[in-house]
Design a protein around this nucleic acid. Structure first.
Lengths: 184, 184
DNA sequence: TCCTATAGTTAGATTATCTAATTACATTGA
DNA sequence: TCAATGTAATTAGATAATCTAACTATAGGA
């Protein structure tokens, strides 16, 4: 009997792929009567899709040794490069995270010379944060791939589908940002 | 002068909201020439939307002291409750994570009696994992809220928009699952 | 000048991952 | 039959992204 090729990752036996339908059956059984099942189904797929998109982007960015949160912050700094004052606090506010979390990100980025922290003369408690030349260079290296990954997500939609889709997405995203109080 | 109400969270000064357009301008400047800008725009909004949806669901589940990953695993176990053998390896395979990561999740869930690990008689190396009665109860408590949150994500779309949207989402999700080699 | 608010950081925790090493059991083949 | 190899699960130890609470330094009002 021939030797099976060494399994590098996981086991032989697998769980069968169930697909979407058992989730829908479960939903029918367990949803409250005032929940619209079609909407819930749609929302569930969006949630799954969101997960998968995140994964795709993560994989892509891994090649540049950076994560989405960090790129996000670098982009934020890029787009506010003309501002006189960009503080950890205002970044935290915009990103919807705590100041201490921002500190952690900044430490990481500063260690790699991607950002610069400068004391703010007009108020000794504050620090101005800006993207460095190196940071800008890195962003410019990443972005072409990043945009192309974004585009690839919806490649297979035709023009018409894209048009409708876009309208819907913008609407949904706006309402979610409002509900969450976040947003760019 | 009247005292300002204590700021509980962050600072006074804020970064202006830039909206989408500076991102699009940046995209025009930095995208490779063979990237379709409309598609990239669409993909970018999907990425943002995905983030926001994740956040919504997380907030919702926090009330039950559980995270999406763990609910995911409990649902997986629920839907495979009839299977003779569900191992950490097969779970890892299905969730697309390492076995050791599954072990961590299982330890957490077992500590709270939400799952049970049983030695598998036919092969002493394996362990059968199943959801416990308590686990099922918890899932049944969570799901009504969960479905209603899912539904609320797309509430404001009208019937027609939902129909088109659904078609597109299913298509996109299928193709992403294929590209990632994941899927339910 | 003293009190209190604010900005930033540090300390210490949790969650979700990972890789590498370890333990125990199973299988194969000389 | 038993030694070598493979597989399943866990453990050990790391990293990333977040949190809360405590701390330091500065600012500014009464």
């Amino acid at each position: 009997m021939k030797r099976k090729p060494a399994k590098e990752y996981t086991t032989e036996q697998q769980l069968p792929r169930l697909g979407t339908s058992p989730y829908l059956k479960l939903m029918e059984r367990t949803a409250s009567s005032d929940t619209n099942l079609n909407s819930a189904h749609l929302g569930l797929i969006m949630l799954w899709l969101g997960d998968n998109i995140l994964d795709m982007v993560d994989i892509d960015l891994a090649a540049f040794d950076i994560t989405e949160s960090k790129l996000d912050l670098l982009l934020l700094l890029s787009l506010h490069a003309d501002q006189e004052l960009v503080t950890p606090s205002s970044i935290a506010d915009r990103l919807g995270i705590r100041r201490s979390s921002v500190t952690s990100l900044l430490i990481w980025l500063e260690k790699r010379n991607l950002i610069v922290r400068e004391p703010y003369a007009k108020d000794g408690r504050m620090t101005h944060v800006r993207i460095s030349a190196e940071g800008s260079t890195l962003v410019n290296q990443i972005l072409p791939t990043f945009w192309s990954t974004c585009a690839s997500l919806v490649d297979e939609l035709d023009k018409e589908e894209q048009a409708v889709f876009q309208k819907v997405l913008v609407k949904l995203n706006a309402s979610l940002e409002k509900r969450l109080g976040s947003g760019r």
